[in-house]
Amino acid sequence: MTVKKVIMQPSVVFRAEKDIMIRLLHVEDDADIREIAKMALELSGEFDVLQCSSGEEALATVVGFKPDVILLDMMMPGMTGRQTLEEIRQLDGLKETPAIFMTARAQHAEIEELLSIGAVDVISKPFDPMSLADSIKSSM
């Protein structure tokens, strides 16, 4: 798939205040879920988070952000989470970055498939916001 590379501003950037920060790219089309994830991760104080509302937006900003971990929604209009990850994997310095999918379709076969293309974990929706940070850290 050919992706048009454009410069886009990420939807939300926020930084936690601890010394050692985990740089997390969160790609999610649902604004409410982005907001909940943001609050949940802010509470932990361990993440620098870049939030994008689409795969296209993520591809435009991911290189400059250099994330330590990528959190991807699976079902999005336009590029799916899977397509987004496949494109990110083509970019220098991002071939090995841990990727975690969030999906409302947690079928066993789909989970296996996502793991097979390089995901390190799959978080089912609805997720528990209070354990989100720990889930991400334990998967990295």
């Binding site: 649902d30 409410d32 879920i33 409302a104 916001p129 209070m130």
Partner: peptide, 27 residues
């Protein structure tokens, strides 16, 4: 089924997540 699964779980994620954060004192 797949559509229902996705379309129902997404708003539930927001509802449950919001209530979970409220109950935890995050707000």
């Amino acid at each position: 089924i797949s559509m229902v699964s996705h379309e129902l779980r997404s708003p539930l994620t927001s509802i449950k997540g919001s209530m979970g954060l409220l109950l935890s004192g995050a707000a």
